[in-house]
């Protein structure tokens, strides 16, 4: 009776007994006969139930040894550690073999699926496998080679009943939905709207206002001359800078008789037409008529105000008619 009971117990436990192979049973092969390249997933944490792990193993065995293909992991086999099931099952195996003159190359693709979870993060591993190798000239002497394990962490997942929802209400993420199509649609529309608004703003800024780094001719003229002392030399520089600013604006020389080109280029300058005529008057007096009756202080201050108005026109802003000084400062 005891004998039958022992046999029946052995039969029940047999799969676990066969699956658990003693690593010390076979001798290790000389590593110089083996070349191993393993490509494991870069992700080491965050695995949970249902996730898949892909291991790609390139295993080259030099002659005279050969791989015992039966020693490769079996599809559907659940990984164990010291006989304990780990909840990691080999879901799929792809296997190719290329025989060369001096060696045999094996490409092994193993997809494991995780069937375990935990309320706290816990370490897990696709445990090491032992591939058996034989020398056909000495078939009795079986050798083994260890394929290293892949360790990772299984992270908790908040499923109903597993954790207290109220303790897991992170303010940084909303609830998970089974169907997120509506949210995707909303996100697409929101991005589209945002891009559209950006384009409109960009157009308005480029067209009607001043952006740093753009249309800054008169801004530079004003900045570089505002603090200069009101001497004849500095005023000449100020006027030359303004002339050069106008020339750059219309891409040709601006004179009093071709002001229309400036107005056509930028209508805002029409608002300071009166001041433009005064400017040319001042320029003529200083550069060509060598007039003696010039009040440099007043002229400098007028030029400052004029260059500010030009800066506004350049930015396509409207100069307040009250600010326009319609009288020659001399």
């Amino acid at each position: 009776m005891r004998k039958y009971l022992l046999i029946s117990m052995l039969l029940i436990l047999s799969p676990s007994i066969f699956a658990y192979e003693d690593p010390t049973k076979y001798k290790d092969i000389d590593p110089s006969f083996i070349q191993l390249i393993i490509k494991d997933p870069k992700q080491k944490v965050g695995y949970t139930v249902g996730d898949k792990i892909l291991r790609e193993i390139k295993f080259t065995v030099k002659k005279p040894y050969e791989l015992v293909e039966e020693s490769l992991p079996i599809e559907g086999y659940e990984k164990r550690y010291r006989g304990q099931k780990l909840g990691i099952v080999l879901q799929k195996k792809e296997f190719t073999k290329k025989i060369e003159e001096e060696e045999v190359q094996y490409k092994i693709k193993l997809i494991y699926q995780i069937f375990t979870k935990n309320v706290v993060a816990k370490p897990a591993a696709v445990t090491a496998d032992y591939y058996r190798l034989i020398n056909p000239n000495d078939p009795e002497n079986i050798l083994k080679y260890r394929i290293p394990s892949f360790t990772f962490a299984i992270s908790p997942i908040a499923t109903f009943g597993a954790v207290k929802i109220e303790d897991d209400m992170s303010p940084y993420r909303g609830p998970f939905y089974i169907n997120i199509n509506n949210e995707k649609k909303f996100l697409k529309r929101a991005i589209l709207g945002f891009v559209l608004i950006l384009l409109i703003f960009g157009y308005i800024w480029g067209r009607f206002t001043w952006i740093p780094g753009q249309n800054k001719i008169f801004s530079t003229v004003y900045k570089s001359n505002k603090k200069a002392s009101p001497t004849e030399k500095n005023i000449k520089i100020f006027i030359s800078d303004l002339h050069s600013g106008f020339d750059t604006t219309i891409n040709q020389s601006l004179f009093e008789n071709n002001l229309d080109i400036l107005f056509k280029k930028n209508k805002s300058f029409i608002n300071i037409k009166q001041e433009l005529h005064i400017f040319f008057d001042i320029s003529r007096s200083i550069f060509f008529e060598n007039s003696q009756s010039i009040n440099y202080k007043k002229t400098h201050s007028w030029l400052k105000s004029f260059s500010l108005h030009c800066r506004m026109c350049e930015r396509k802003l409207i100069v307040d008619p009250k600010d326009i000084v319609g009288k020659n400062p001399k």
Binding site: K236, S253, F255, F287
Partner: peptide
């Protein structure tokens, strides 16, 4: 010439 040569 008149367009491109500036004065002053």
């Amino acid at each position: 010439i008149l367009n491109k040569v500036s004065a002053p």
